[in-house]
C-alpha cells in the first residue's frame, strides 16, 4: 500500500474534474464519479499526478504562490515581447540555441521547468538530457549568452527547488 497517497490524490483530481464537468452535487452523481475516478486511479497506480497532498503544507504554499505569480508575470511579458516583434515591419530575430545546466532531483520538477521556459519571453526548450537543457532564443541576450541563459533557467529552478525539496 505504498502507493496509497498517490492513488488517492489522483482520485481527488479526477473527482474534481468530474464535478466541474457535470456541475451537479446530487449524491448519485457524486457516488458514480467517485467510483469511476477510484477505478482509473487504481488502474494507473496514481502515476498521473503522484502524491500532491504533501505540496499542501503551509510552508510550501507560500513558495507555490510565489512561483505561480512569477510565472504569470513572465508569461505576460513574453506575449508583449512576441507582439512587438511581429508588428514591426522587419521581424527582428537573432536566433540561437544555448546549453544550460539543470540539475534537479524530481523528474516532475524538471518537466515543469521545461514547460515554463517554453511559455516565457523569447525562449523555447528544444531538448533535455540528464543534467542539461537546450534553449532556443528568439533573440540572443546581450552580454555573455551562456551566463544569461543559466540565470534565466536558475530563476525558475531555484523557485521550484523550494517547493519540491
Amino acid at each position: 500500500m505504498k502507493r496509497f497517497p498517490a492513488v488517492m490524490s489522483t482520485a481527488a483530481v479526477l473527482l474534481c474534474i468530474w464535478i466541474f464537468l457535470t456541475l451537479s452535487f446530487h449524491p448519485h452523481e457524486l457516488v458514480l464519479g467517485f467510483a469511476v475516478s477510484l477505478i482509473i486511479a487504481v488502474a494507473t497506480k496514481g502515476a498521473f499526478t503522484g502524491n500532491w497532498f504533501r505540496l499542501l503544507k503551509p510552508a510550501r504554499l507560500a513558495a507555490e504562490v510565489n512561483y505561480v505569480l512569477y510565472f504569470l508575470g513572465k508569461m505576460f511579458m513574453a506575449n508583449i515581447d512576441v507582439l512587438m516583434r511581429v508588428l514591426q515591419p522587419v521581424v527582428p530575430v537573432k536566433p540561437g540555441i544555448v546549453r544550460a545546466s539543470l540539475v534537479m532531483n524530481s523528474e516532475r520538477a524538471r518537466n515543469i521547468v521545461a514547460n515554463s521556459i517554453t511559455l516565457t519571453p523569447g525562449t523555447l526548450t528544444i531538448e533535455m538530457t540528464g543534467t542539461e537543457i537546450f534553449v532556443h532564443w528568439i533573440s540572443l541576450p546581450e552580454g555573455d549568452i551562456h551566463e544569461e541563459t543559466q540565470k534565466m533557467v536558475d530563476g525558475f529552478a531555484n523557485r521550484l527547488k523550494r517547493i519540491f525539496e
Binding site: 537573432k94 536566433p95 540561437g96 540555441i97 544555448v98 546549453r99 531538448e127 537546450f134 549568452i145
Partner: peptide, 10 residues
C-alpha cells in the same frame, strides 16, 4: 540562420 548552436556541437 542560427548564430549559436550548442545542440549541434554536442
Amino acid at each position: 540562420n542560427l548564430l549559436e548552436d550548442d545542440l549541434a556541437e554536442s
